[in-house]
Amino acid sequence: MTNETLILSKFDAGVLVLTLNRPDKLNALNFALTQALVDALKAADADDSVRAIILTGAGRGFCAGADTREFAILTPDNQALVEQRATLTTELQGLGKCLSKPLIAAVNGYAMGGGSGLVLSCDLALATPDARFGYPEVKHGIVAAIVMAGLVEHVGRKAAFELVACGRTVGADEALALGLINRVVPAEQLLDQARELAATLASYPVEAMRATKQIFHEVAQLPFNEGLQRGRALNARMRAFRHGQETPA
């Protein structure tokens, strides 16, 4: 399926690929694309035939962040629209954790600002050697506010502050070292490797994958002892996931 801003491609094993489709704008997030992504991710999560989701970009960039052309209308004189845009952006940036299905970023080229935040909202991320990540908002007199929580969570305070305060761009190898991504893969293999990874995750029992993702994001926000007790409670329940499954030797 294709609309003006987002391409949906479904493959075997329950893998869905969402391709940001504004290549002439490096897939910058305007109202339409942001809403399309939110709607598509929610629909995919509710679709039993979808078991893993890949997010990538058309053309030579993954996502350049917010579409700055819309800033002309996002002014204090139009506060209701400003609030609407902020709410929509916040929903998109936080949605990845809320999905019951694994979400994988396949990063080709630039992932800047909100685009870099979108990568962090995914559970896993693969990137090409020419991928670039950064938070240049401060250079334009604005703040990387909504994406900052995810950045601090992934890379820690010192590295995160350097990225948002200096607006520095980092390459794929440094992004890997910082923990922004999981792997650097050849450009010609990006989607194949992303689909292979997605198919692997999709092959596991649905309930086990759903519970794994849910508890992972829960315990990441909890003190250790609370997370341990949360795991204990799930451990007693997870036996049901293996009902009817062959017990490993």
Rank of each mutant, 00 (worst) to 15 (best):
V155C: 01
L20F: 11
S203G: 10
Y204D: 07
E196I: 14
A52V: 06
Q93H: 14
R239H: 13
G179H: 09
G117W: 01
A72P: 02
G171W: 02
P76A: 00
V155G: 03
H154L: 07
L81Q: 02
G65S: 02
G14N: 00
L118V: 03
R157F: 14
N108R: 09
F11S: 08
A131F: 00
E4L: 11
Q189A: 08
G114S: 05
V50W: 04
A199F: 09
E83H: 07
T90A: 13
A105I: 03
A165T: 11
T200L: 12
F224M: 12
D12I: 10
P129G: 01
G109S: 00
L26N: 14
Y204V: 11
V164H: 04
D45W: 01
D12M: 08
A249G: 11
L120H: 06
A149D: 15
P102I: 01
E246H: 08
A198C: 10
I146N: 04
L18A: 10
L103C: 05
T128P: 01
A36V: 03
E70P: 04
N108Q: 11
I7V: 14
S100F: 09
Q35N: 11
K97P: 06
F224H: 13
D77H: 12
V138G: 08
N3T: 08
L37P: 07
N30M: 03
R230F: 05
Q193S: 07
I181T: 10
Q193V: 07
S100C: 13
A159D: 13
A127E: 01
L197Y: 10
P136Q: 00
F216L: 09
L197E: 09
S203F: 05
I7C: 08
C63G: 00
D47H: 07
G117Y: 00
A32M: 09
R51D: 08
A105T: 04
I53F: 02
A43L: 02
R69C: 06
G171P: 06
V164F: 05
R210D: 09
L41G: 02
A220E: 14
Q35Y: 07
Q35V: 08
A177L: 11
R51F: 05
A177R: 14
V206F: 13
A64W: 10
E162P: 10
A46R: 04
N27F: 03
T89K: 15
A175R: 00
E70M: 07
L74I: 02
A44T: 02
L55G: 05
E153K: 14
T128N: 02
G179K: 04
K97I: 07
L8I: 11
R195Q: 14
I142S: 12
F62T: 02
L33N: 06
D12V: 11
A32Y: 12
N235D: 13
L88N: 06
R51G: 06
E188F: 07
A105N: 05
G141M: 01
R22M: 08
A233F: 12
L16M: 01
G156P: 02
M112Q: 08
F161Q: 10
E83F: 05
L120C: 04
F71N: 13
L37R: 01
R210L: 05
L151Y: 04
R242K: 13
N225Y: 12
T90I: 06
T2G: 13
C166F: 15
F31I: 13
A86R: 14
M148R: 15
S116Q: 06
F161Y: 13
G94V: 06
V15G: 03
R132E: 07
A72G: 03
T68P: 11
E153W: 04
G179A: 09
L228P: 07
A72F: 03
I104G: 01
A175K: 03
G109F: 02
